[in-house]
Amino acid sequence: MTAHSPTSLTSPPAIETVGLTKVYGSGNTEVVALRDVSMTIERGEVVALLGPSGSGKSTLLSAIGLINPPTRGEIRIDGQVVMNGSRALVDVQRFRREKLGFVFQKSNLIPFLTALENVLVALAIAGREGRSARRRAMDLLASLGIADRARNLPSALSGGQQQRVAIARALANRPSLLLADEPTAALDSKLGRQVMELFRDVGHENRAGVLVVTHDQRALDVFDRSLRLEDGVLSEHAGSGATTLTSTHST
C-alpha cells in the first residue's frame, strides 16, 4: 500500500451517510435491504465493501450513487446534503456527472466508441470538449498504461484493458467519489489484484473517495479499510486497520 493520509481535516468527506434505510415492498412482502447505515469515506480514502449475496451491497452502492433513493436517511456528498429520505435536494443528473464515478463488474464500455472516445464521452457529458478534454483523456489512459490502445474499439481490448478504460472514464471528471461494483469479478486473481491496486493508486493520487464492492478477500490488504454488510447492517470488517468508519447501527 502506498503512503497515504485521508484529508478529512482539510476538506469535507467524499461521502457521508446518516441512518440510511432502504425498504422494498410493504406488509408481508416487505424486505429491509439497508438498516440505519451510517458511514463516512474521506477524500483519498479507499474502502472495500464485503458481504454475501443479497446482503444489500448493491443497494447501498446504488443509493450512494443517487440511482436508487433510500427510504429514510441522509446522503451527503462533498459536505452537501443531496438526499433526504427519498427526496433529492439537488439536480441528481448534474451531481452524478460532476461528483461521482462508476465502475462495474463488466466494463460497460460503449461498444461503438473507441477507448479514447469512451473517456471523452464522460468529459462531453460534463460539458468539456475540445483539445483540453482530449489531453485529459489521453493522460488518464497513459497513466493506466493503455495509451497505445486509445484508438481501439472495446471489442479489440482484453478484459483487463477494458476495465482500465472504464476506470479512466470514471476518473475523467475528477469525481469526489468513485463507486465500483465487483470490478474484478470477471478477471483472474492476478489481474484482479492489479485492478484493485489501481483503484488504490487512483484514489490516493486523485484524492477521490473510493468504495469498492468485492467478494475477493485476498486483496483486502490493498484497501485503507474494509466494511462488511450483512442483512443490511454495516459493520467494520474484522482485521480492518483503519477506524474512520462511523457505524451508528447496533444490533
Partner: peptide, 16 residues
C-alpha cells in the same frame, strides 16, 4: 438501451 442507461448513469442530459 444499455448504453443509454449507462449515459444516464454518467449524468447525460436528456437532450444528448
Amino acid at each position: 438501451l444499455h448504453d443509454i442507461a449507462l449515459l444516464k448513469l454518467m449524468g447525460a442530459r436528456d437532450r444528448m
